[in-house]
């Protein structure tokens, strides 16, 4: 994390997290060694990948798969494993 760490006086008390949804600022995309690659031609938009992704890193628009959020995808490979049409492959970073 390149962000400057806060001092104790700047923190909310009690370890509370008072900004909702701040997990998005934590870039877990840097943890990957393999990245999922989407092959649009094979995709049937069943959205199994979207359902199984533990990090909400599958991007969907109007009910259709549109790609990955590589800022947060940790490269776990569950999407590729679950895809019924081999439309996702894991490739070395």
């Amino acid at each position: 994390m390149s962000e400057e760490l806060k001092g104790y006086r700047e923190l909310p008390i009690g370890g509370l997290i008072v900004e909702p949804g701040n997990a998005v600022t934590y870039r877990t995309g840097t943890w990957r060694t393999f990245r999922p690659v989407w092959h649009e031609d094979k995709c049937i938009h069943c959205l199994f990948c979207w359902v199984y992704c533990p990090d909400a890193a599958v991007q969907v628009k109007d009910g259709k798969m549109t790609g990955f959020d590589y800022e947060h995808c940790k490269g776990c490979g569950i999407c590729a494993h679950e895809c019924p049409r081999d439309a996702i492959t894991m490739e070395k970073e």
């Binding site: 760490l5 806060k6 001092g7 104790y8 006086r9 923190l11 008390i13 009690g14 370890g15």
Partner: peptide
């Protein structure tokens, strides 16, 4: 370890 001590100090 990046924040635990700050929270204790704040306590």
């Amino acid at each position: 370890s990046d924040y635990y001590m700050e929270h204790k100090r704040s306590q």
